[in-house]
């Protein structure tokens, strides 16, 4: 059942011996409390055991009261509590569960029943641990995801957007910073017609040295394209 710690709270030594020896055989670590006050010290510590077997009637704080204290404390509300008692009337069972017990074991119990109930507790605890681990992972992931949201002021003329710092930024720069989008730069057909074609004008007689760097590159590209279309004979 794994290396889980279990609190046993009972003022009867025979019962605590029986329980702790049994838990040890199942590879569970038993912590024994001899009365309700000792049990509360263990349960209210910084690292309480995740499962507790609590006698109903003990000196100090009784079992149902311990259940109520645990359930009223959000930091320990997840603990799995089994009430152990000689009381077995329907009203007692309801009172115990209402006080916050997860399960109920009537004395004298047999080890088969104890094992089944502890197994059920261990299953619930593992499920809770898995779930809370998943929630933590998801929260971490969410904190790292860049998100685009809210109202974004944009210039009606140049399409720059105003950032949180009151700077005006190019819209592509803004989107890259606030999302996982990576831009791959290209030239759309209308821009190609309007801007690039002008620079690639074959009738352009400006000497290559006199053109801009961009124009020179485009001139070379254009010459290459012309050559592949009309290979020299």
């Amino acid at each position: 059942m794994g290396d889980m710690r279990v609190l046993i709270a009972d003022d009867d030594r025979t019962t605590t011996t029986l329980l702790s020896a049994t838990l040890r055989r199942w590879s569970l670590e038993a912590i024994v409390a001899r009365d309700g006050n000792e049990a509360w010290q263990v349960l209210s510590s910084d690292a309480p055991p995740s499962l507790a077997i609590l006698d109903w009637q003990m000196p100090g704080v009784d079992g149902p009261d311990l259940c109520r204290r645990v359930r009223n404390d959000p930091a320990r509300a997840h603990l799995y509590l089994i009430l152990l008692t000689a009381r077995d009337s329907r009203a007692d069972i309801i009172e115990g569960i209402d006080a916050g017990a997860d399960d109920y074991l009537v004395k004298p119990f047999d080890l088969g029943e104890l094992r089944a109930r502890i197994n059920s507790g261990v299953r619930v605890i593992s499920l809770q641990q898995t779930l809370s681990q998943r929630v933590t992972e998801l929260e971490d992931a969410l904190a790292n995801v860049k998100r685009l949201h809210g109202l974004l002021p944009i210039c009606s003329y140049c399409s720059r957007v105003r950032t949180d710092g009151n700077y005006w930024e190019q819209v592509d720069q803004y989107i890259a910073e606030h999302s996982s989008v990576h831009f791959s730069h290209g030239i759309c057909p209308p821009c190609s017609d309007k801007i690039v074609s002008g620079e690639l004008d074959p009738e352009d007689t400006t000497p290559v040295q006199g053109r801009s760097a961009f124009g020179r590159l485009k001139g070379r590209l254009q010459a290459l394209m012309m050559r592949s279309k009309h290979p020299p004979r």
Partner: peptide, 15 residues
């Protein structure tokens, strides 16, 4: 009552 309850629990544990 309380002392008898404790003994009853122990006696029950060992049948």
């Amino acid at each position: 009552r309380s002392a008898a309850h404790a003994l009853k629990g122990a006696a029950g544990s060992v049948s």
